[in-house]
C-alpha cells in the first residue's frame, strides 16, 4: 500500500456563517508528525472537525485530498473508512453501547463485509492494547465513554486509534486533562504506531506534549491560517517566549479569528 498523503489547499471553513479557517495549506505524509500550535480561538479545532466532516462546520473554499481522493465529498463514515481518524477533545457518550462492541463494529466497517475480524482475535488484541494503555479491562464492557473521567476518555480515544490503525490521525488537544503519567502512556502509544504507514496531525496548546511526541514539523495557527512553520525548535521557542514575539514579527495584534490586525 502506498504511503498516506493528506493534502489541504487554501481551506476555508465557516461555523454559523462566520469564517474560522481562512486559507490554510498543509501536507501530511506517512511517517511524518505535524504539530499545530497556537493560542485559543485561532481555528485549530475547527480545522480538525472540518477535516472529519462534522456537520456544523461548513467548508466554504479550498480542497482536501486523502491519497488523491476528494475528502470533502465523502460522508463522515467514508472519511473514516478511507483512513482518517480524529481523536476528539469532547467525545460523545453513548449509553447502552459497550466500548468493545463499538470498536469491533468500527473495525469491521473499516475492513468491509466478508473480512470481519474474528471475535476471539479481536478481544485478544483489544485487551492487549488496553493493557499497554493502562486501561482497566472492565472498560471493554463499559458503555462508551459513559461516566469516564476526562483522562479516561482521552485514553479511550487513543485505544480506538491503535485498534483502527488509521492512515492519517488527527489528535485534537489529546493532552488536555491528562496528568503527566497518562500523558506518557498516551505518547508511548502514539510513538509505537509511528511508521511510514501513518501520518499524524497533533493539535496542542502546549509544548509539553511535544516533548513526548516529537514532531517533524511545527506550525503555528493564528487568525485561521498557518502563520509560521518550522521544526521542533519552533515549539521550544514558543514555550520559552510565548506567542507575543511572533505576533510582533508578523504584525498581528489580535491572533484570534475575526481580528483584522
Amino acid at each position: 500500500m502506498s504511503s498516506p498523503y493528506l493534502k489541504i489547499e487554501n481551506l476555508h471553513v465557516a461555523v454559523d456563517g462566520k469564517e474560522i479557517v481562512r486559507g490554510l495549506n498543509l501536507e501530511v505524509r506517512g511517517g511524518e508528525i505535524h504539530a499545530i500550535m497556537g493560542p485559543n480561538g485561532t481555528g485549530k479545532s475547527t480545522l480538525a472537525a472540518a477535516l472529519m466532516g462534522h456537520p456544523h462546520y461548513e467548508v466554504t473554499g479550498g480542497t482536501v485530498t486523502l491519497d488523491g481522493q476528494n475528502l470533502l465529498e465523502m460522508s463522515v463514515d467514508e472519511r473514516a473508512r478511507a483512513g482518517l481518524f480524529l481523536a476528539m477533545q469532547y467525545p460523545a457518550e453513548v449509553p447502552g453501547v459497550s466500548n468493545a462492541n463499538f470498536i469491533r463494529t468500527a473495525l469491521n466497517a473499516r475492513r468491509g463485509e466478508g473480512n470481519e475480524v474474528p471475535v476471539m482475535k479481536f478481544h485478544r488484541t483489544l485487551h492487549e492494547k488496553m493493557r499497554e494503555l493502562s486501561i482497566d479491562p472492565s472498560f471493554a464492557e463499559r458503555y462508551l465513554n459513559e461516566g469516564f473521567s476526562g483522562g479516561e476518555k482521552k485514553r479511550n480515544e487513543i485505544l480506538q486509534m491503535v485498534m483502527l490503525e488509521p492512515r492519517i490521525a488527527i489528535l485534537d488537544e489529546i493532552d488536555s486533562g491528562l496528568d503527566i503519567d497518562a500523558l506518557k502512556i498516551v505518547s508511548q502509544a502514539v510513538n509505537s504506531l509511528r511508521s511510514p504507514n501513518i501520518g499524524f496531525l497533533v493539535i496542542t496548546h502546549y509544548q509539553r506534549l511535544l516533548e513526548h511526541i516529537v514532531p517533524d514539523y511545527v506550525h503555528v495557527m493564528m487568525q485561521g491560517r498557518i502563520v509560521r512553520s518550522g521544526d521542533n525548535e519552533l515549539a521550544r521557542q514558543l514555550e520559552a517566549r510565548g506567542y507575543d514575539w511572533l505576533k510582533q514579527e508578523l504584525g498581528i495584534v489580535d491572533e484570534t479569528v475575526g481580528a483584522n490586525a
Binding site: D77, A80, V97
Partner: peptide, 23 residues
C-alpha cells in the same frame, strides 16, 4: 452521538441502530 460513531467508520443507519439498541 451519530457523528461520533460515524467518525469511526460506522455508516449512519448502523450508528442510529446502535444508539437505539443502546437505549
Amino acid at each position: 452521538q451519530i457523528y461520533y460513531l460515524m467518525s469511526r467508520g460506522i455508516p449512519e443507519a448502523e450508528a442510529v441502530r446502535m444508539i437505539v439498541w443502546g437505549e
